[in-house]
Design a protein around this nucleic acid. Structure first.
Lengths: 216, 216
DNA sequence: TCCACAACATGAGTAATCCTCACATTTGCT
DNA sequence: AGCAAATGTGAGGATTACTCATGTTGTGGA
């Protein structure tokens, strides 16, 4: 494998989703083009009806070239999901990093959800990508693992704010809160903005009430 | 899960999911056989990999006969979903019918969730069917409408237990609680029974905390 | 500059799968 | 029995994910 000129020292997607790491500059641009074309098509009509031929055409390349970068259709979905997941994970990690009290937790979480909602609202295609992931057993496992990772971040923050609680209990709560967050976001982008905002606010209140000592 | 099918006079599924209302006895039996075959295949390998030829073979009929009862693959998924939805809706309506106080609401809801979990645990294929519904834009709308219907039942019960609250607020909360319930169930059947139980209990606590007057 | 080789591009073709349709068989009724 | 309506059948059309043999472009050394 030759060392290329503008080497991205940290390989962005090196998890097997892509067939090979593109070494030339144009190749990397094409990968971006493919992903944005796919995203657009998924947003328009859903992942099921996204045709590989359409992705190729919209990207201005041939079918063969498309398959040089992605081994199959699911790989495109997976790569898109991983990108969004990375954004969200970073957002969560950053938002909860310095939390040490319940008040801080509630405030940080509220801000986090607002940010999360903005991301979702700007890219409602995330909902369709999530749906596509859920339809496949293997991809569903990936999404669950991602949720567990995010839940672990939240559980850590909760443990700092609520040191008296058992870690196991916190992990369970955190997993629920995280999955419910995704659920609320998908719900919010499925309706008009007014109801969406109300749902997000209601979710924030529900979550905030979970950030409290166990009362029996 | 016993879904009653002994009333030929009142067409049971007359919503376009089925190609024609089967009039002869054997036809109705075949429809049942098709649905149980499909359910089994979906449970085994997911709806994507369920092949219409497999459904036909497992049902002991030809491809042509299969398509005489169901216009397409999605119709089978939809019919299965509608049956499960009907069971759940009846369960919710019955469980919340006589609620008039917060205490009753919490207790009824807790019992309801236990029942719901039992249904889900006995038929984890519901998760796969739900996933299949989510993958399609039109079917997703159906599921959302179903959730809204269930939420309306809960909102009514909440209004009786919490007459001071605005109906709009209650509807928002109820929709969230219902969707989160589905989410929790799917999560619960995706892990071992111990964690599943813990998740369900944690969800019940979260929901119970929502059944309270607005505190700011 | 030229050449050899690796990387990349192409699209006709293959296999898998959903679904149709023209025709055969069974059932219900008189 | 005999006819019409209902039901059954599976080869085949249409679509689509994906492959592969072949052509084109870029890279590095002599």
């Amino acid at each position: 494998m030759a060392v290329d000129q503008t080497a991205p020292s940290t390989a962005p997607e090196d998890d097997g989703a892509m067939r090979k790491a593109p070494t030339q500059k144009r190749s990397r641009e094409r990968v971006e083009h493919i992903l944005s074309s796919a995203s657009r098509l998924i947003a328009e009509r859903g992942s099921d009806t996204m045709r590989m031929s359409e992705v190729a055409e919209l990207s201005g390349i041939s079918i063969g070239s498309l398959y040089q970068y992605f081994p199959d259709k699911a790989a495109i979905i997976r790569t898109l999901a991983e990108r969004y997941n990375a954004v969200c994970r970073a957002c969560i990690a950053k938002g909860l990093a310095n939390v040490t009290t319940i008040g801080e937790l509630r405030q940080a979480f509220s801000a986090l959800i607002d940010e999360y909602y903005d991301i979702f609202f700007a890219e409602p295609v995330m909902r369709d990508i999530w749906s596509a992931m859920q339809a496949d057993k293997a991809l569903r496992e990936i999404e669950l693992a991602e949720s567990r990772q995010n839940a672990a971040l939240l559980a850590d923050a909760m443990k700092r704010a609520l040191p008296g609680e058992a870690m196991e209990t916190l992990q369970t709560s955190a997993l629920l809160v995280m999955c419910f967050g995704d659920c609320a976001m998908r719900l919010a982008v499925s309706t008009d903005e007014t109801e969406g905002r109300a749902l997000v606010e209601a979710y924030k209140r529900m979550a905030a009430r979970s950030f409290a000592p166990e009362t029996g």
